[in-house]
Design a protein around this nucleic acid. Structure first.
Length: 274
DNA sequence: ACGAGGTCCTGCGAGC
DNA sequence: TGCTCGCAGGACCTCG
């Protein structure tokens, strides 16, 4: 499930094959991934457009074109791969958007469950969209103090707050679970009940874990693929996610799995996390 | 301001 | 073997 490290990996992988290229032909298999743009308009605006920049913001991959931004949010099962050879039947299966490039190659957005979304925004719309998202956790502007100010204002469970894209950009379920474990914080604890020490630890652990996950090309559970079509490796380093019922790596206590926070699986050690 | 629950979507695994 | 059904979940929405 592409969160910040996965989208960062994808973007780094596909950027060299995309920047400076012109899109020759667009194929879209399903309209239901489009948000705020019609099939006709998307195809018309993308065809012949030149890709100027490729970057990540939160969990979105952004293709900056001459006058539009194609914003891709892979959701649960989305992947972005640049193919240099003709697609195999497997590659083409579930391919939602295919963009043929000049000088060969094809960018393919593949999404089995199609919970991902595509947006086409002009620069002003993109600026507004991006401004509504929280700070990038790996940027300097994301300080422990700033995180603390956010958390002090919320009665919600800490896990829900750090997964809220308006508060912190790019953290999803896997890394929220991991960061809270590493920081020794119970995921259900109301955010405003955390102290400055908690803020500092959580801030440091969010950054450390996201950085380590990027270094490992992200976490592959089932569907996630890098921009080269390979699996990530961070699943080998997860300490809690996917390990409910197994012993805590620190103290041996059986890890708890619960769905009571925002309906998403939370895995934690009730001994190490308070 | 908050929690609960529904919606989107399809593959998969459990149960019969 | 073959069917049905519930579950998975990120973002977004409504309702109480």
């Amino acid at each position: 499930m592409p969160e910040l490290p996965e989208v960062e990996t994808i973007v780094r992988d596909i950027r060299p094959a995309l920047v400076g290229r012109t899109i020759r032909r667009i194929r879209l298999s399903h309209d239901d991934v489009l948000r705020g743009v019609s099939r006709r308009k998307l195809i018309r605006r993308l065809t012949g457009a030149r890709i100027q920049r490729v970057y990540r913001r939160a969990k979105h991959a952004v293709l900056e074109l001459d006058s539009d931004r194609l914003v891709i949010q892979p959701g649960m099962t989305g992947s972005l791969v640049v193919h240099r050879r003709p697609l195999t039947a497997d590659d083409a299966r579930y391919a939602v958007l295919r963009a043929e490039l000049d000088r060969g190659g094809e960018l393919v957005y593949r999404d089995v469950r199609r919970l991902g979304t595509l947006l086409l925004l002009n620069p002003k719309e993109w600026e507004r969209y991006s401004a509504a998202l929280g700070p990038e956790p790996l940027d300097q502007e994301f300080s422990a103090e700033r995180l603390g100010n956010t958390l002090r204002r919320s009665r919600q469970a800490i896990k829900k707050v750090i997964m809220d894209q308006r508060q912190v950009a790019g953290v999803g379920n896997i890394y929220a679970n991991e960061a809270l474990f590493a920081a020794g914080i119970d995921p259900s604890k109301p955010a405003r009940r955390l102290g400055p020490d908690d803020h500092r630890r959580l801030h440091a652990e969010i950054r450390r874990i996201l950085g380590a996950a990027i270094a490992s090309n992200g976490t592959t559970f089932r569907d996630y693929r890098t921009g080269t079509g390979d699996s990530g490796n961070f699943q080998l380093e997860l300490l809690v996610y996917g390990r409910e019922g197994e012993p805590c790596r620190h103290c041996g206590t059986r890890l708890t799995g619960t769905h009571t926070i925002d309906g998403r699986i939370s895995v934690f050690c009730h001994h190490c996390q308070r």
